[in-house]
């Protein structure tokens, strides 16, 4: 979904640049609460993995492909603020080194994939996690649903930006239908890859999964009193 230079006009690109800069500024403060000596190394690795995974386009039919955006995945693994930093770093390197995504469109891409993708993915993840049983393994389906929603969410915001600042006069309804349709399909791939990676990490080191921490704490409380009625500690 990397937006090239030219799709959006200058005012729109400047506005998304301001949004992106503000988002990164907030993320720099928020990430401090998410990261300590133990978890900080995850950020570099998660960003590097997202960069690598974004190289692997998978076919979605009719001569079209998609690739992992990684916002929900990163948010579940390292926390939403750190995930904004991960995605922003990936997008910066892609724009400067790989000519993937425009330079004037960098703010747009950070807004779409770094802020909307991470934000929608994480909010849906938290909502789904809240209604599932409190077990660490439940982060996998919650992450998958968050990942699925994050892709059409970013596509919807692109459509809004295009309606405001698109450089070609095409029917915005056509763009909306096509963007949401294709990115719903791509979202299925996003969900599959995210579930695969999150399940591998949860099975190996659940303590390093940011989104699993509330569930691990609940488990620990239950295990310390094997004789107590189940759920008593959680309820208290």
């Amino acid at each position: 979904m990397h937006v090239p230079d030219g799709f959006l006009d200058a005012p729109t690109s400047i506005a998304t640049g301001v949004v992106a800069a503000a988002g990164i500024g907030l993320a720099l403060r928020g990430a401090r609460r998410e990261l300590d000596d133990r978890t900080a190394p995850m950020v570099g690795l998660v960003a590097a993995f997202v960069f690598a995974a974004q190289m692997v386009n998978f076919p979605v039919g009719a001569g079209t492909s998609g690739h992992l955006l990684g916002g929900a995945l990163a948010a579940v693994l390292v926390g939403p603020w750190s995930a904004v930093l991960c995605l922003s770093t990936v997008l910066l390197v892609q724009a400067l080194l790989m000519a993937d995504g425009g330079i004037t469109a960098l703010g747009t891409n950070v807004t779409l994939m770094g802020i909307v993708g991470v934000g929608a993915g994480y909010l849906v993840f938290v909502a789904v996690r809240a209604v599932l049983p409190r077990r660490p393994a439940m982060v996998v389906p919650a992450a998958a649903v968050g990942a699925f929603v994050s892709v059409p969410a970013a596509a919807a915001v692109f459509t809004l930006l295009f309606a405001v600042g698109g450089q070609a006069s095409v029917g915005i309804g056509d763009v909306a239908v096509a963007m949401l349709g294709w990115h719903t399909v791509i979202g299925l791939g996003e969900a599959a890859v995210t579930a695969l990676v999150v399940s591998a990490v949860v099975a190996t080191r659940p303590d390093l999964v940011h989104g699993a921490r509330p569930l691990l704490a609940a488990s620990t409380l239950e295990i310390r009193r094997p004789g107590a009625p189940a759920g008593a500690e959680v309820a208290g």
Binding site: M1, H2, V3, M55, V56, N57, F58, P59, V60, A62, G63, T64, S65, G66, H67, A155, F158, V175, A178, M179, W182, H183, V185, I186
Partner: peptide
């Protein structure tokens, strides 16, 4: 092994 087809945005 990545697909060389245009991505969703390029296709749209």
């Amino acid at each position: 092994l990545a697909s060389a087809h245009p991505d969703g945005l390029e296709h749209v």
